[in-house]
Write a protein that binds this DNA or RNA. Structure first.
Lengths: 354, 354
DNA sequence: GTTAGCACTCTGGCATGGAGAGTGCTAACC
DNA sequence: GGTTAGCACTCTCCATGCCAGAGTGCTAAC
């Protein structure tokens, strides 16, 4: 689980507030440490640079800003970003023009449910200019909707399992030479009367009671077992797949100019265990969550931030969409985008369960 | 298409031969330009460094080696690698232990045909310590094996199309409120009598002749149209998907220490158009092909080499497996691995068409 | 044809020094 | 008391120069 660091200071006065915000905005857009002079020049603060310096020193004392070295400007700490994120997380919205554009894109693949989460990641990547990530909506206890057996050749058949939400699992199975498509269809029919609407555990139980004496009963039993295995594998995988797009955007950020740091980001992305944890935490929370720098447990992720939101139907099927970028990220935009896209995904999933 | 540069020199004498080979072996393993002294010390050449220097100068003259700067050792040119590859391409084999290991891995997913190509890429990546790439075997003119319609809710159904080789396409379709699973099954049955074993074009023609007056005829026609669209989309995509694994391995290479070059490699991988061309060229050739540095047309790929091999059944369904790495790659190993894995994939696909 | 010897060249690492940016402190100001 | 001007101080960055090391290419001798 990600640990959340609590800042130790009390509330900031209005001016310190504005200055911290200005430092973050400036640093996010320029990637250069921000000096007191630059602040008074570019943000109409109405005070001198000396005053700003005093406040910057205070902010540094409370751990919200830091110094790369004595004679450099200030940069935000992870705690500084955390404070900033808390202050905008509820109000961050997407511009309506972009909302329309995205809606249009999703409209085009409305019927390709297998691709929804991929489009979500791609869209988020292109809007935020960071990496977009998404997982498919995973049912909590998979229910089978229908089974089909199709002969491929005289030794192989394709076992197709349609799940409650319309998604599909498929594997090959061996058949005895000479088995006809007719008998396969018969087996499938027998199976359908057993599996419809059921979970792995339920099918398992039903098969134990299955006392048919028909010559195909053995085959039915064998295939049912295979289905149970298939469902179990699917149910136990914490995250089925994490799709990401726009990694090139992250590669462009100056903080990752040396490929060593970049390497760590990538190996972090391959860390399915941690992502699985986050996905579960986010799904449970029900709203956008932000994980900044060292708030992430794995060392590899201490230089990146994640903005994640769940989608789907709690208790039935949930997935996650989000952004991965440098801690120096445009949080308002990232949060707004992720929230909007997760809302859109909600609508799509709702249709499946309507 | 990739252009192949022909080296201008005639055959090399045995000694020049051995030295060029030594330079390449040394440079591939160390990534440091190779000097004449290092060569006589590490490879028992039986001559002095001065003699080696003369030969190195000759090799440089014929364009097989080059110099980063006056006082540095030699590094191979793309032409040098090309010469080397030609000399070993027919004899490169995998160690038998590794062959067994890989066979074992594939045995475990023998029935998960949708995952074969992914495992191929992952295996190649881990064996060669470079990036593995693979595409699924794509049929040349997709034939439908069977169609199924499954009710998801009172407005949506899942249209499942099983193709000849057992792979699956699926989309959602709208249905009229009140449509029962029984009538969907009826529609599916009607469709199956039309589509079995047919391609998009054939289905299109059959539907034009379809003169049924049953109340479901309209629905049958609509769904058939949807199937045709689905197949057409699939048939016209030059490469359906390019799966890659082990990109982290490439990131570790010293030539990509600065993320700028790395960035180009990644954007090259996203260049589906070029990869599509290569896949077609490789599939047509029927054997392992190597594309080194500037033999690749896109500028982004001038610092990488590709080792690709086709698999599947020519004229029916072909895919490609391969390695992407720096031009400074262990070619014998890469070629041996790719050839072996493509052979294994052949066996798997053959079973589908047995 | 091969080799020893040597002058030459270029890189990489390291120290030096000045310009620039930004801080932190002090003392004066309102 | 908070704010500000002034200034010394610190540190980075960049250019410069220098030296050691590696490796070459050439020449002359074997």
């Amino acid at each position: 689980m990600a640990r959340r660091i609590r800042r130790s200071t009390g509330p900031l006065d209005r001016r310190a507030n504005a200055i911290l915000r200005a430092v973050i905005d400036e640093y996010v857009s320029s990637a250069i440490p921000v000096g007191s002079l630059a602040l008074v020049e570019r943000y109409g603060l109405g005070v001198s640079s000396a005053t700003v310096r005093n406040i910057l020193a205070e902010l540094e004392l409370s751990g919200l800003l830091t110094h790369p070295h004595t004679s450099a400007g200030r940069i935000p700490t992870d705690e500084g970003y955390r404070w900033y994120v808390e202050s905008i997380i509820d109000s961050a919205l997407m511009p309506e023009v972009e909302q329309l554009m995205i809606r249009h894109q999703f409209g085009q693949i409305e019927y390709a449910n297998e691709h929804w989460f991929r489009l979500a990641a791609s869209t988020i990547a292109s809007v935020t200019r960071a990496a977009g990530i998404a997982t498919p909506a995973k049912p909590s206890a998979t229910q089978v909707r229908r089974v089909d057996l199709v002969e491929i050749n005289d030794r192989l058949a394709s076992l197709v399992v349609v799940l409650r939400e319309g998604t599909i699992k498929q594997v090959l199975i061996n058949i005895e030479v000479g088995t006809t498509q007719e008998s396969l269809t018969e087996v499938a029919a027998a199976l359908n009367s057993i599996v419809d609407g059921r979970t792995a555990a339920e099918i398992s139980r039903a098969i134990a009671r299955f006392g048919s004496t028909s010559p195909l009963a053995d085959v039915v039993r064998r295939v049912a077992d295979r289905i149970v295995v298939l469902l179990r594998e699917y149910d136990t995988a914490s995250v089925e797949e994490v799709f990401s797009d726009g990694l090139l955007n992250v590669m462009g950020a100056p903080e990752f100019a040396h490929s060593d740091k970049l390497r760590r980001v990538f190996s972090a992305l391959e860390n399915r265990a941690y992502l699985g944890e986050l996905v579960e935490a986010v799904a449970a929370s029900g709203d956008v969550q932000v994980f900044i720098g060292h708030e992430n447990v794995p060392d590899d992720m201490r230089e990146v931030a994640l903005v994640l939101a769940p989608y789907g139907q709690p208790g039935r099927a949930v997935g996650v969409v989000g952004v991965l970028g440098p801690t120096r990220m445009a949080y308002p935009q990232a949060i707004g985008t992720v929230r909007f896209v997760s809302g859109l995904m909600n609508e799509l999933v709702d249709h499946l369960y309507a």
